[in-house]
Design a protein around this nucleic acid. Structure first.
Lengths: 213, 213
DNA sequence: GTCTATAGCAGGATAGAC
DNA sequence: GTCTATCCTGCTATAGAC
């Protein structure tokens, strides 16, 4: 019912955003044509320019309207999935599971991390938004939570590098599926994804605290 | 002196490969035009088609003639950098240092990992070559070396996942420099790169063996 | 808000002179 | 082996009918 003026009930624009996201993730900004996007979205070639002004702005809106909200949802899922007084292992396992096997479709997950890794390697304007709205606040919050569980002997700097290391694994196992499959021989079924969550949890738990016993 | 017939003294082709690699790494295959490559290589537009047939084949030759040899050099540097009876820490530190601060220019290093991460996320024909000629043999060799240092209680499967986890960090800290800089506030000077080597070594050492004491 | 039609340009590739 | 000139396709973006 109540809707802002910028986000009216515009099914065409929604379809465009959806298809554009999938294609940008798969082929990159330059690898996709407006024609391909509009064809897939079953609308007219001119629709991109009408709704978003130009191709580049469509790309930015994909991040604004789809990527950032999904990232927030994943963060939320992590938070609500935590037990009351989470141990370090709880934190790591809930985190890994939220990102690797969280409450979104596998297709969306691939899409999400593909777009992310493209921006990580080749930052554009979208990266600024992601860094400000998603990465910085989330890492700040994570740092706090882990700080509590780790005791007092860790400097801020070291903790951030540790968190980045954990994040590196999450990202790698999400976006380099083909390579992981080649090396390990496993395909990404539910069983293997669960195995990966355990791997990241166990490896990081030891990595973070040194001695688990 | 002795030269194969496919790799004659062709300075233009060399320049093309060099400039093409830098541009493909920076902007991706679709983001670069043949015109841009030939302009940078200070040669004629037709040179790409004359020497390599077409743009796609130039991309493949970049991997064949530059990427794979560089990867082999890095692997070699890792091997010769190891002490006679390497401990687990020796293995990890030498490995991390070879890739993060090894015997190539920083420009080449960025280039190398950018191309790699593009192929990891979006495998093309080049990925097959890299997987067969570089990844598979290197991981097999690493698995052997780490197996010796770790004792008998590790299954092959778990070891591979551990190695992939280490590799995930190496890759992430190499190709996501912008994000790492935003989160940590550090720029990639020699000091910070050394810090990263220590981080990966220490984190992985604990992650791999559980109890460092 | 959606369409067709098209302007205007940049892209990869090639032919043929030198 | 290198050049110029050019073909032709495909692209983004826009104008204007409906």
């Amino acid at each position: 019912m109540a809707q802002t003026d910028t986000e009216t009930t515009d099914l065409t624009a929604e379809r465009l955003l959806k298809e554009a996201e999938a294609l940008f993730a798969k082929k990159g900004f330059e690898g996709v044509s407006v024609r391909e996007i509009t064809t897939r979205a079953k609308c007219n070639l001119a629709a991109v320019n009408y709704h978003f002004g130009n191709k580049k702005n469509l790309y930015l809106e994909v991040f604004r309207c789809r990527w950032v909200p999904r990232a927030k949802r994943l963060q939320q899922h992590f938070k609500t999935g935590l037990p009351p007084n989470p141990s370090l292992q709880d934190l790591l396992e809930t985190l890994a599971r939220a990102f690797l096997a969280g409450p979104i479709s596998d297709e969306d997950r691939c899409c999400h991390f593909q777009l992310m890794s493209r921006e990580l390697g080749q930052p554009t304007e979208a990266f600024d938004m992601v860094a400000d709205k998603v990465m910085q606040p989330f890492f700040a919050e994570l740092a706090q939570r882990f700080d509590l569980s780790l005791g007092k002997d860790c400097e801020k700097d070291a903790l951030l590098l540790d968190l980045l290391s954990v994040f590196a694994m999450v990202l790698y196992f999400s976006f380099a599926r083909e390579a992981v499959t080649r090396i390990t021989g496993h395909s990404y079924d539910e069983r293997f994804k669960s195995r990966l969550v355990k791997q990241i949890t166990a490896f990081s738990l030891r990595g973070l605290q040194g001695d688990p016993s």
